[in-house]
């Protein structure tokens, strides 16, 4: 698509410029309203792109903590990447980890229970401890039908639930007001991005990503998370250019390799209404 271009009136905004500026606006809006906030960094491509936008918004290190929810079951490449760039980008990294739950070792077979305990509950404890008023998350509408229904600013109630049947009106960049002391806001600066846009942006900006995304021996991961619940897809895309080209033509859904989406109908709705990301 288009690169940065100029005419007699100056720069012409490309679609990636528009997405980038809208996200930066939302990130700054979040911080203007909630100084006591944090962002979630799963170390995947989307939240790494979000982190890149956050650094742009604040001209360097984020002025708030970056939270990694560590299930203890992530790929080793994810941990290596996290530690390298947390240092390089001078991040205030917080790790939300449920050691007690890990000892009890929830069964992989019961995915709803496992995700709830190791991710949702670990995050719940972190929010309670730190009293975060708002969290930035890198979810996108095109990832999953249920995420397509999200707002940019989405309140969660005291028990973490998403009242999806009565979401606030959102118009003209006027986002939900201040959160009550017993709720927190989920803020989604990247809702409008598609998977292809993320990769084109990573390519344009030279954003580093975990090596698992690039094909080895005819397979690559399109979506990464816990080692036990992610399957690679068949692909020969070993470079950024090849990934972008693959996504322009693919008909395979991005989260096709993610077990939690497939277990049963409406599992994602259940997870999300309970506070899952």
């Amino acid at each position: 698509m288009q690169e940065h271009a100029c005419n007699e009136n100056g720069r012409i905004m490309t679609d990636l410029d528009e997405l980038e500026n809208k996200s930066i606006y939302i990130i700054r809006e979040a911080y203007a309203r909630h100084r006591n906030m944090a962002m979630l960094w799963s170390i995947g491509k989307d939240s790494t792109a979000l982190l890149w936008l956050v650094r742009k918004a604040f001209f360097g290190p984020p002025p708030f903590p970056v939270v990694h929810i560590d299930t203890g079951r992530k790929f080793k490449e994810i941990y290596e990447f996290r530690d390298r760039f947390a240092a390089e980008w001078n991040l205030n990294l917080l790790i939300a980890r449920s050691d007690r739950a890990l000892e009890a070792a929830p069964s992989f077979a019961d995915k709803l229970a496992c995700c709830t305990e190791l991710k949702t509950n670990a995050l719940k404890r972190m929010i309670a401890e730190r009293r975060f008023a708002a969290l930035l998350l890198a979810i996108r509408r095109d990832e999953h039908g249920i995420r397509a229904k999200e707002r940019f600013f989405s309140p969660r109630d005291r028990s973490f639930q998403w009242n999806y049947l009565d979401q606030p009106a959102e118009l003209w960049d006027q986002y939900g007001g201040t959160a009550d002391s017993d709720t927190h806001l989920r803020i989604h600066p990247m809702l409008d991005w598609r998977e292809l846009d993320i990769w084109r942006y990573i390519q344009r900006e030279g954003i580093p990503v975990v090596s698992l995304y690039f094909a080895r021996n005819g397979r690559r991961f399109r979506s990464i998370g816990c080692e036990c619940c992610c399957q690679p897809v068949e692909s020969n895309a070993a470079t950024l250019d090849e990934i972008v080209e693959e996504l322009r033509t693919t008909r395979i859904a991005e989260r096709a390799g993610r077990a939690q989406d497939k277990e049963q109908a409406f599992m994602m709705q259940k997870l999300r209404s309970l506070g899952y990301m």
Partner: peptide
């Protein structure tokens, strides 16, 4: 951030 600029257009943060 990371750009050298002297101006900006409508739509830019």
């Amino acid at each position: 951030f990371l750009e050298s600029r002297t101006s900006a257009e409508a739509g830019e943060c």
